[in-house]
Each structure stands twice: as C-alpha cells, then as structure tokens.
Amino acid sequence: MNERCNVHKNPEAQELPVNQGFLSSKRCSDSIWKQVLVISITICLVTILCGGFLARAKTQQKPPECLQVACPDSWIGFQGKCFYFSVDVKNWTSSQRFCDSQDADLVQIETSQEMDFLLRYKGPSDHWIGLSREHEQPWKWTNGAEFTTWFQIKGRGKSAYLNDKGANSASSYTERKWICSKALLQTSQWPQMRQ
C-alpha cells in the first residue's frame, strides 16, 4: 500500500481516525526529512567536488606574469631580443648612454636574419649601431668583443651606423637615430622606460 502525504490548507477539515492520522502524519514527516537529507547530502557532495576541482585548477595555473614574455612599450621583439628604434637623433656616445639608461646597448648584430630585420624596421633614416674603433684599430662592439667582420663596414669613420645599403661609418659626433637592444626577459623584470 502506497500512501501519499497530502497537505491541506486547513488541516482541521480532514478527519482521520486517530491511529491512521498519526501514522500518516508520521510517514509524511519521515518522507520529507529523508528527501531533505538526500538533497542536503547531494548539495554537500557537489560543493566539495567543485571546490576540489577549482583548487586543483588554481594550483596548476602559473601566475600570468610568469607566462608573459614581452618587450617594454616602444620596443620590438625579434629572435630573443628587444630592439628600440629611436625617433630622436643624438651622437654615437649620447645614443649609447641612452641605451645604457634602458639597461641595453647600441645594437650588436649577430646574424644575417637580424641584419635583415634591422634594415627593414629602421626605415629610411640612418641609425647608430654598437660598433666603434680607435684610430687604425679593429672594430669592437660596445661589450668589448672584437667584430668578426661577417659584414662589411664602409667608410673611414670611428663609429658605425646602418643606412639603406648596410653598414657605414662616420665621426662619432654626427647626430643620427640609433637602435638599442637587450635580451628578451619576463615582463616583471623590465624597468619603466626612462627618457
């Protein structure tokens, strides 16, 4: 025999025998409590499972600053380096000072792909690069390394620059645009641009 719990707006309107009413009421009460218990347990289990998945997902994710590798504003990334193409003009020494203030150097060109990239992005203007020499001495990069002459530098000047045809040289006091470079680092390691 399957009994249902009937809920009436006016419980006095229904007359049940004393024993049946009590049993029926007790069965309804037990049935409701079982449903409440099942629903409560289900909600607790779902909450625990969701919390576990969220906690695991958070521990497996790395913070965004660890994942982002980029160049500072106004710099362009290429092959693990960041390059800054100036808008202003300065002499070779002042150009190197500017690069140094950005934790960089006048560009040291290491590959033919890098040379092609620099020639493409520099535009029509001449730009200082990180090569210089003393009178009748070999060319050296700003870090002191001797130039291996893998590309030709025309002219008799003491400081090198890029023009539309490649590398040339001029006196250090001539004002030109310049190119700085530095290694590509995580964004949290970049200082703010100083001018």
Rank of each mutant, 00 (worst) to 15 (best):
M1A: 08
N2Y: 02
N2L: 01
N2S: 00
E3G: 03
R4W: 00
C5M: 05
N6P: 05
V7L: 08
P11C: 11
P11E: 11
E12F: 13
E12C: 07
A13L: 11
E15C: 04
E15V: 04
E15A: 06
L16D: 13
P17A: 11
N19V: 07
N19M: 01
N19F: 03
Q20A: 07
G21T: 06
F22R: 03
F22T: 04
S24W: 02
S25R: 02
K26N: 01
K26E: 01
R27Q: 10
C28K: 03
S31F: 15
I32S: 01
W33F: 04
K34L: 12
K34H: 11
Q35T: 14
V38W: 00
I39T: 07
I41N: 02
I41A: 11
I43C: 12
I43D: 10
I43E: 07
L45I: 15
V46S: 14
T47N: 07
I48P: 00
C50R: 11
G51S: 06
F53E: 11
F53Q: 09
A55R: 07
R56D: 15
R56M: 12
A57K: 15
K58Q: 09
K58V: 09
K62D: 13
P63Q: 14
P63I: 12
E65I: 06
C66P: 03
L67G: 12
L67F: 09
Q68N: 08
Q68R: 10
A70K: 13
A70M: 13
D73V: 11
S74I: 04
F78N: 08
C82G: 09
C82E: 11
C82Q: 10
S86D: 01
D88T: 07
V89C: 12
K90R: 06
N91G: 08
W92F: 11
T93F: 04
T93R: 06
S94R: 06
S94Q: 06
S94A: 09
Q96M: 09
Q96G: 03
F98C: 00
Q102T: 00
D103L: 13
D105Y: 09
Q108A: 15
I109W: 02
I109P: 02
S112V: 01
E114G: 05
E114A: 05
M115T: 02
F117N: 02
L118M: 10
L118W: 03
Y121D: 11
Y121C: 08
K122G: 14
K122H: 08
P124S: 14
D126P: 02
D126K: 02
H127F: 14
I129Y: 06
S132I: 00
S132P: 00
S132E: 00
E136W: 01
W139E: 07
K140F: 08
W141S: 10
T149L: 14
T149I: 14
F151Q: 14
F151I: 14
F151E: 14
Q152M: 10
I153H: 00
I153Q: 03
K154A: 13
G155T: 01
R156H: 07
G157W: 01
A160K: 12
K165G: 00
K165I: 05
K165D: 10
G166D: 03
A167C: 06
A167D: 02
N168E: 15
N168V: 14
S169G: 02
S169H: 05
S172V: 04
K177W: 05
C180N: 05
C180D: 06
K182M: 05
A183Y: 04
L185G: 09
L185M: 14
L185I: 15
Q186C: 04
T187F: 00
P191E: 12
P191D: 11
